[in-house]
Simulated scan of single mutants.
Amino acid sequence: MQRVSCPDLTAAAWRSSSYSNQEGGDCVQVADGFPGLVPVRDSKVPHGSTLALSTSAWTAFVHGVVTG
Rank of each mutant, 00 (worst) to 15 (best):
D32E: 10
V45P: 01
S54F: 03
E23A: 15
V65A: 04
C27E: 11
Q22I: 06
R41M: 03
G25M: 12
A52N: 12
V38C: 07
G33S: 05
P35I: 01
P7D: 05
A13G: 15
C27M: 10
V30L: 02
P39W: 12
G24A: 06
V28D: 05
V66T: 07
V28H: 03
P7A: 05
D8E: 06
V30Y: 03
S5D: 03
S18D: 00
V66H: 11
V30H: 07
W58H: 10
H47F: 11
Q22S: 14
E23S: 15
S20Q: 06
S49A: 15
D42T: 04
F61W: 05
G48R: 02
G68T: 01
C27F: 01
T59L: 05
A60S: 07
S49Y: 11
C6N: 04
C6T: 01
R15C: 02
P46K: 12
G33V: 00
S49E: 10
C6V: 01
P7R: 05
G25Q: 14
G33P: 09
R3Y: 15
F34M: 02
D42A: 13
L53F: 09
S49I: 13
P46G: 09
S20F: 09
P7V: 04
G48I: 06
W14S: 10
W14Q: 03
Q29P: 00
L53P: 07
T59R: 14
Y19W: 12
C6E: 08
G24F: 06
E23W: 12
R41K: 04
G33F: 01
D26A: 15
A12P: 00
Y19E: 06
L53N: 12
G25K: 14
A60D: 08
V40E: 06
M1C: 13
W58Y: 11
D32A: 03
A13D: 08
V65L: 14
A11W: 05
Q22N: 10
G33E: 07
D42C: 07
W14M: 06
V30T: 09
L9A: 00
S17A: 11
G68V: 04
